[in-house]
Structures are given as structure tokens and as C-alpha cells.
Design a binder for these strands. Sequence first.
DNA 1: ATTAGCACTCGCCTTTCGGGAGTGCTAACA
DNA 2: TGTTAGCACTCCCGAAAGGCGAGTGCTAAT
Lengths: 343, 343
Amino acid sequence: MSHRPLDPRKELILKVVTDDYIESAEPVGSRTIARKYNLGLSPATIRNEMADLEESGYLKQPHVSAGRIPSQQGYRYYVDVLMQQQTLNEEEQGLIRLYFEDRSRQLDTILQQTVKILAQLTRYPSLMLGPTLQPSIFKHVQLVPLSATDILVLIVTDMGIVEKKVIAIDCPISQANLDRVSYILNKKLRGRPFASLKSSVLNELKEEIKTEDSSFQQAITLLLSTLDTRERERVYLDGIINILEHPEFKELEKFKLLMELLEEEERLHRLLASRRPGLRISIGEENPEEAVHECSIITANYEIGGRVVGTIGVLGPTRMDYAHVVSVVEFIAQSLSEFLSKS
Amino acid sequence: MSHRPLDPRKELILKVVTDDYIESAEPVGSRTIARKYNLGLSPATIRNEMADLEESGYLKQPHVSAGRIPSQQGYRYYVDVLMQQQTLNEEEQGLIRLYFEDRSRQLDTILQQTVKILAQLTRYPSLMLGPTLQPSIFKHVQLVPLSATDILVLIVTDMGIVEKKVIAIDCPISQANLDRVSYILNKKLRGRPFASLKSSVLNELKEEIKTEDSSFQQAITLLLSTLDTRERERVYLDGIINILEHPEFKELEKFKLLMELLEEEERLHRLLASRRPGLRISIGEENPEEAVHECSIITANYEIGGRVVGTIGVLGPTRMDYAHVVSVVEFIAQSLSEFLSKS
DNA sequence: ATTAGCACTCGCCTTTCGGGAGTGCTAACA
DNA sequence: TGTTAGCACTCCCGAAAGGCGAGTGCTAAT
């Protein structure tokens, strides 16, 4: 990600072209630049520089007699070097603060609404990967018999996340035994981080119950086997319509391709889960997923008590308002982390 | 919904026009009809009949020199009188049966996948209103302390639906007291249908705890107050992209209007919740929601053990393949009901 | 009552064409 | 040597024009 630096004037022009194109969605020509951003340069000079920038791969032309637009490499340089850090204005900050001030305490709802507010502020589709169990602390397990053959297993984490799972058993287990299983599991597991469950603790447990009767053993073994097979985290999504505001998606086909992705939670999950931690900007074909080869994705992580638990971000055309989106995503990730950590 | 009957030949023509338009999405003219469906009538005769049908409001013309298309009233007559009952072909039935054969036992997943399969078979966006609590049976309540001030309340129904709610309390309640509250509530409520909870039982409970100490009373009162304030049922949705296959949504504006609706769970909930029970077909402006004034909606209910608990259906342009969709929706609602009831 | 014939309408597709924005090149200039 | 004015050229885009075709309503004949 290191760039050989461009000479300052070229940088300036690349920046101006990118800024203007991001705002106007129209290829930008030398004349426009000279007039609009009086840089003390004539259109001809600018043309020369642009020709150079095109040759070295930072700009491109949709067709020969049009202005220039940034190439993927151009955006990359812009994002890494040229883009001006931006801070949210009062209004935006206020909105977010207000939102996190007090809210329904349902984790689910909070997450859904957070994505919604992100979409609102950025005007791009926004997504979030729900919190992983891994860094959470085991709080409670409860077994509820639903019928003769089905038992509902509830697992509660310190964050109030509830995992549920129905398991089928061959022969009925008495209520008393169920209670004892619950009791033992709780005693053993409460307060432990989930990450530590797989290995040692579970083996210990298995040892301990060697002396118990077989129906009891069956119950607990079954349970243990479900503890670590967890469904994938939920993906939250909002603001899809925003994408339609942008001319790059006027052709239905382009939009359809994206929509197909957005409707498949599994693909979204894969996309988000593959992101490296920290604030990430991936542009166009840098993305692994083909459907977003003409899009950029900006994500950040959110944490609970200092432990990274999830990812939140925004999806838009490569011609995206990077500076603004970065500031919003960062601020929201930050706010969400604080909110989740203080409870 | 009663119609003054049309004379048989007019009916025939209305039916043919509607069938053809549903299939082709093009206004259908007299020539086409005469040629394609040899009814033993000349184009001229058909023209006369169509003119009559237009005058009485069953057909309309997009513009003067185009063929005819059904009006809303025309569709209504078609649906109520002319449409031929259809049964699913083997392949479709097989697919559905296979799907309900065995599946992850997670209720959530089942419902989500059911909508998905409905969308796949109909090629329209499909939606479902998640099961109501009302007709379910109370199975278990569990209180889990998350922190000094927050308690997680879990309520489990006989269907394995888990309602969760975090409630904040002013002063800590001892674990022992929490357990006692759980115990009392479970003893009192287990086996009761939710519908009966609001009134008498809760009052009884309040009476019973008059003698307890105040922290205990506080806990239980708080709890009772949350029991009947339930969040709205979840809305499941799949297959939005399907809508783009249809020419009536080529103009982005039309699509956007719909998309806005589909992204707002609350509006969807309202839309689905307002449906009267049974198999319902509502056409165009018969729908209360403005965004679907050029759409039709077909819904049916699904049940658990004979109790209606939810709604499942399909949304499409008024030019919708009613006969096919009706058969699919009915069959899936039926299958889902059986599936949910047998466990 | 039905139908053949005919004149007429009108959306839609294709083609044409001019304007405008932008370019690269060349030559002059500081 | 870098900058700039001038100019010829390219090519997209939108408007206008025109022809085709599908369909209609009406009239007159069967």
C-alpha cells in the first residue's frame, strides 16, 4: 500500500479531479478545473498533467472526448494520501449521540437501528456483522423440555445475547435430570469466556460425569456437542434504496447484481467476515466478491469492553464520498462500542 | 365481491385477454386473440366485444391504438370467477415436500427458508408475518441477572419461540429472590395459553404476592408489566429482486417506491397484519398501502395445532400469475402448518 | 348478428444531425 | 524548458424526423 509519491502539482490535480467527480458524477475536464478551482494554471497545462496522470494509471477517460475520472489506482492514491480527514458536523454528531443516549435495551434492535442511522447519515447501504460469541462470557444455560423428544437449549452471554437451539433426543429425560444437567453446567461454565469452552473445560466435564447414569450422560454429551456448533452471526442491513440515487446504478443490470448479493445473507457474511480488523477501505476489484467490483466498501470494528466483536460498514460506488463516510463509520463504530461497553 | 355475471362470450374474451396479458405483459389486440386462441370469432367481432368490456369497466387501453389490458375491476372478475384452479406440478410439490422433510429445527431458520422457497417458486417477492404469541402456550420463564441493574427475562413457548427482554431495576435483587420469582411464575403460568395471561392470572398473582417483601414485589411487578408488552412479530422477506423481472418496474421510480416499503419492517408489518384471515387476494388500489396501488398481494394463513398464528404471501404487479401463485401460497401455507404442528 | 375492408391513430424504433464539451498537437512565448 | 493560446478533430448526447406496425372504430355487405 505504499505509493511512489507524485509531484505536488500532479497530486493537486488528481485530488481536484477526484473531489469533483465524487461530487458531480461527471467526468471532469481541464476547462472545468481551471475555471472552478482557480489554481493559476491554464487548461492546457492541466491537460498535459492529466495526460501524464492517465499514462501512469491514475486517471482514465470513459471515451476519448470526455473528461477524466479516477481509475482504481487513482482512488487508492486519493484515499491513502490526498483525502482530507473530516470531522462530523455538530448536527450529525448530535444525531448519533442522541440515538445512543437512551434506547430500547434489546441488543437486536440496537444493532438494527445502528445500521439504519449509518445508512441515513452516509446515504449509502450499510451493513453490520452481528457480535461474535467468542469473546463473550458464559452466563447461563437453561434446558426447557418442549415435548417428549425435543429440548430447547438456551445459552445466555454477559451481553444478553441469547443463543437457542432445539435438540432432539431419543429417549425422554426426566425433569429432575434436566435440572441437574443445567445445574452442573452452570456451575462449571458460568463466568468463563466462550473462547475457552471448546477445549479443556469440556473435557473436564466429560471426565466428571463418568460416574453418572447413562441417560444423564447422554443428555450432557449431546449438549456439549451443540455448544460449539454455532450458527453464523447475523448480518444487519439497511438503506439499500440509497444505492439507486447514484447514476452508476441506473442500468438495472448493475443494480440487480448487487441486489442479488444483498439478499444472500451468507455471501454478505462471507464478505464482512473476510475483512481485516481496523478501519478498512477496499476499492473496486480489491474486493474479493465479484458483485462489488465496481463498488467500494468501508468498514470498522466495534468492541465490547475492549474486545473486537463485530464489523460495521458501508457499501457504495467507487465514486464514493470517502472522507465523509470514513468519519461517519469511525464515529458510529466508536459510539456503538462505548454504548455496548458501558452496560 | 358479488358480480353481475357477464354473458359467456364476454367472459371468454375477458379471460383470454387477461391470461394473455399476464403471460406477455403486452396489451392484447383482437387480431392476436383471433389468431392465437381460435375461438371461431373474427377480429371484428372480438373488437366489438372488447369495446363493450371497456365501456363496462373490465378492460382498458393504455393508449388509443394499442390493445386492451384488464382494469382492476377486470382482474377482480378474473380472480373471482374466471380463473382456473391450478394444482402444483410434481416437481414443485416435490421441492416443497423435500424441504419440509427434514430441516434445521430452528424456528427462525425454518420461517426464513419457507419465504425463500415461496419466492423461488412464484418468482415474486414473498413475505411472512412471524407467529404471534397469542395462541401459544406458556412453557417457561427464566430470569438471568446480567449486571447489578439489568435482568434478562426469557420466556419460552411450547413452540420453542423465545422472547427475550432486558429490564432495568433500581436496586439489586438477590439471586435467591430471582429464583423464587422464576419458580412462582413458572408454577403459576406453565401450560397456560398466552391469550389468558393478561387478565385474571396476573391479578391472581399480584394478590398472592401481597405478603412478600418489597424488593420481591418490585421484581415481580416489573416482570408482569413486561409480559404483555410484546414487540411486534418479525417480518420475513425474500426474493425482492424478482420484481425487477417485470417490465412494470423498469422505471426506477416505481421500483423505488416499493423498495422503500420493503425496507421498512413496520410498514410491512402493518400491511400483513391488516389482512383478513383465509386466502386473500387484493388487487391494486384495494390495498390500503399506497406504495402497492399497482400491485396485488396474495396471502394465506398458517397454523399451529389448528390455531392461526401467522400470514404468508406474495407481492407482485397486478399483472400477476394469480392462478399459479394461489396454488403455491396455499400449498406452502398448508405444508408449513403441518410441519409446525407435528413437532 | 357477424365479418371483411378501410382509413386513421399513435407509440416506438431508427436514423439523422447539430451542438457542445473535451482532447491532443503545434507553435509561440517567458 | 515549462506554459499557454489556438485550432482541428473526436465523439457523446439529445432533439427532430420519419416510417413501420399493430390496433382501432366505422361502414357496408352477408
